[in-house]
Computed example of a mutant assay.
Amino acid sequence: MKVNAEARQRLSALLRARENDVLQRWAEIAARSLRGRLTEAELVRQVREVYVALMGMLEGAGDGELAGAGSSESRAALGELSRSWARQGFTPTETANLVFTIKEVMLDLSESGETDQVPADFLVLSLLVDEMGLYTFDTYTKARESIIADQTEQLLELSTPVVKLWDGVVAVPLVGTLDSARAQVVMEKLLQTLVDTGSAYAIVDITGVPAVDTQVAQHILKTVVAARLMGAECIISGIRPQIAQTVVALGIEFGDIATKASLADALVHALRASGVEFSKRNRSL
C-alpha cells in the first residue's frame, strides 16, 4: 500500500519528536503480555528495532510499502525479530503484538492531548503497522515450521539407533510405530553403518513394535532387501506370538529371511553363521 509523502512526513516528524516517550510507553505496554520473560533492557532493544523498521517505511524510498525494494532493511529487521522470538518460544500472538502495540501508544498520546495527530494520519499509521504485523506473523509461522521439522528429524535420528553387537554384526532395535518417514531413516542409517563397519550381518529387532500390519511389514522387507543389496544378511528378531499370528492371518511372506523370537537368538544365529563356535563351561560346585 503506497502512502502519500505528506502523511509519511507528518508521521515521521511526530515519531521523531516524541521518540523517547513513544519507546518508553511502547515497552511498558508490550511488557504486560510477556510476564517478565524478557529483561527491560532487552525489551527496549527489541521495541527500538521495530521502531527503526517503521521509520524506515516512513522515511525510506519504498513509499510506505513493506514489500517494496526500498523497505528491504525493514523486512530484514522484522524477519530477524520473528525468527528470534520463534526460537525463544514466544507465541505468534506475542510476537505480532510487539508490532501492533505502537497503535495503542499513539492512541494514548492522541487522547491525552499530547499530540495534534489528525485521524487520517492515525489511519495511515494503522494500515502500515497492520502490514508489518502480518509480515511478522507470517515469518514467525515459517520459522516455527522449520524448527518443528528440524526437531522431528532429530527425534527420528535418536529413535532409530544402529548399534554394533559384535564384529561383523549390527542391530537396529525398533521401538514404536514404523511409518514411511521413519522407515526411510532406518534404511539410510542401517546402510551407512554397514558401509562404515563392513558388517556382514544385520539384525532388525521389532520387539518394541506394538503391532505389525501389512504396511509395517513392507517397510521391514524393503529395509532387508536394501541391506542384502549391500551384501549383508538380515535377520528379523522379536517375533512374539501375537505378531506371528498377525503375520500369518495377513498372509505376509518373509520368504527366506531368517526370523527369531528374540534379539539374543538372532545374535547367536549371526555368530554361528559367521563361524563363531560356542561351548558350555562346566562349573564345579
Rank of each mutant, 00 (worst) to 15 (best):
K103D: 07
G68P: 09
G168T: 09
L98C: 04
L271S: 03
G208S: 06
S279I: 05
V185A: 05
R16P: 07
K189V: 03
A232C: 05
A273M: 10
V22C: 08
V224Y: 01
S84Y: 09
T39K: 10
E19D: 11
E94F: 08
V105C: 04
T141Q: 13
I236K: 09
E145T: 13
S82M: 05
L15T: 06
V47A: 04
G255R: 00
G275N: 03
V3M: 12
L158A: 10
L190V: 15
K103R: 11
A41N: 13
A266Y: 05
D121V: 00
N97S: 14
M57A: 11
G79N: 11
E111C: 12
A77M: 12
V169L: 00
Q24K: 15
L263W: 07
S262V: 04
N282S: 13
A226H: 01
I220W: 02
V185Q: 06
W26V: 08
A120N: 11
V22N: 08
S159Y: 02
F122E: 13
D121K: 01
S262G: 01
L178Y: 12
E80A: 14
Q245I: 05
T91A: 05
D205A: 08
Q218R: 06
Q215D: 13
V204S: 14
A41R: 14
V276A: 07
A61M: 12
V47W: 01
V99W: 05
H269T: 12
F100C: 06
E145C: 08
Y201C: 02
Q24N: 15
V22D: 08
S112A: 01
T214G: 10
A41I: 13
V162Q: 04
R16K: 15
I148N: 12
Q154V: 10
V129C: 07
L81N: 07
I206M: 10
R32H: 13
A273C: 11
L267S: 03
S126F: 05
G133K: 00
T152H: 14
L78Q: 05
V163D: 01
V172Y: 05
Y140E: 00
T214W: 07
L23Q: 11
I243Q: 02
E80T: 15
D265T: 00
W85T: 09
V268L: 13
V169C: 00
A41Y: 11
V172F: 01
L14S: 11
L14Q: 13
C234N: 01
S180N: 07
L109C: 13
A27I: 03
L155Q: 06
A67E: 15
A264E: 06
V204E: 13
R37M: 02
A86I: 00
L54M: 02
R35L: 12
A183Q: 00
L174Q: 00
D63P: 01
G113E: 00
T246S: 05
K2H: 12
V247D: 04
I257Y: 03
V186S: 09
K280F: 09
L190S: 15
L158V: 12
P161L: 05
M230C: 07
A227P: 00
S72I: 12
T136L: 02
D63E: 06
L54V: 03
D213F: 01
G208P: 05
V118C: 10
R87V: 12
